[in-house]
Nucleic acid binder design. Structure first.
Lengths: 223, 223
DNA sequence: CTGTTCATCTCGTAA
DNA sequence: TTACGAGGTGAACAG
């Protein structure tokens, strides 16, 4: 990894056009060739960047170096270096990578194992119940034996309501299931999504991840 | 900005849990306190990070330093530094920031100012016309006085068609507007999006950004 | 290889 | 402050 601190101006042209006025910034060039330009503030996202694979060309000399980075999608990043304050390279080797735990898939597992938390007497028919337009997260039957399709999201936005509506439309064509009602379950449901869901007769359910995890661990303790 | 190259292990706990095994990485600490951990490859996104504002604590000594970064949302980033290979700081001053050109807002402005480019006699009612499920980009009336809802995208994909369909559904409940037709306008419309749009009776319109900008500047020249 | 969905999304902006 | 939608979204996964 090469790290350069320099007073520079930058122009990007590609999916949009962008320009950075002259200032001191960090230019980061990784081993795979990708380039990132960071200011000393803001979040982790660089001001400008160019992903690998790309072509890096250096031209000019002295106090007016120019870096031009291009790729095969006709994107172009032009960096004018007016003054280089630091330039260093570091050997780092390959990275073993990140291990994650606690994302959305876990939520579906937890709820599938505890469908009676949705309403008393609810029974799971199956997870990822297939339809022609994709699988529904959960298909259940309530205490009266009526089919219920459940769509689970971490954050319930309007797209998820559309998705569930489409599933219901298809499920209701199956005379063995009809009539099928819908439940939209999420840790958080946005107001607009709620409006649309209720407009379509879909029930909204707020999930408590910690509570579900608590129930799970309590049940495990019983055995 | 402080840049440290070190052999380290990292643990993050907060919105999820994540762990990084021991390896040499770049640790970046910006002036506003945010911390990012980069490997020498992958894209511009760091492996782990912690945004400002946060609390940074350094403890231990010699070859076993520990950095603990916490914030008020009970997120915690723990960095064990097993070997520091480089540690430097750089004064960079504030950044004038990025100037962008060619994003969706520009397209909407340009088209709003030139609605007769959509079709002859078209008149703008208002931009960001509100509905219960969000604002429509443009509401217009055509030469016959019939209401037309326009959804503008830079890249026209299928979810934009869904979005416009929802707006039309709600707008058509308003007896002052009914019947409302839809136009899906984008610089580029994906084949699947076009099929769905036409299936729903929504007209597709390809926008030429340069052309719209040209019309705009020509009109300016007239005055 | 495209298409779809998730993300510690980030980021801006308007109510 | 919160809600909402765009993003040079990126990244992972399924078909």
């Amino acid at each position: 990894m090469r790290l350069v601190i320099a007073k520079c101006t930058v122009d990007y042209s590609g999916r949009l056009d962008a320009h950075l006025p002259q200032a001191v910034r960090l230019l980061m060039i990784k081993a795979d060739g990708c380039v990132a330009i960071h200011a000393d503030g803001g979040a982790y996202k660089p001001l400008n960047w160019m992903n690998a694979p790309n072509l890096f060309r250096e031209s000019g000399e002295g106090s007016e170096l120019t870096w031009i980075v291009t790729n095969d999608k006709s994107e172009k990043l032009t960096i004018q270096l007016h003054e280089v304050l630091s330039d260093s390279s570091h050997e780092m080797g390959s990275d073993p990578g990140l291990e994650k735990d606690g994302v959305e898939a876990h939520l579906q597992e937890l709820l599938a194992a505890n469908v009676e938390q949705i309403s008393a007497g609810m029974v799971l028919v199956r997870r990822e119940y297939p339809t022609n337009i994709g699988p529904v997260d959960l298909l259940c039957r309530d205490q009266n034996g009526q089919a219920v399709a459940v769509e689970i999201k971490r954050r319930g936005e309007i797209d998820g309501v559309e998705q569930l509506s489409r599933y219901l439309e298809f499920l209701n064509r199956d005379s063995n299931l009809k009539p099928v009602t819908g439940i939209y379950a999420a840790q958080e449901i946005k107001p607009q999504a709620r409006v649309l869901a209720e407009d379509r007769g879909i029930e909204c359910l707020i999930l408590d991840y910690d509570e579900l995890r608590g129930i799970e661990s309590n049940e495990l303790k019983l055995f």
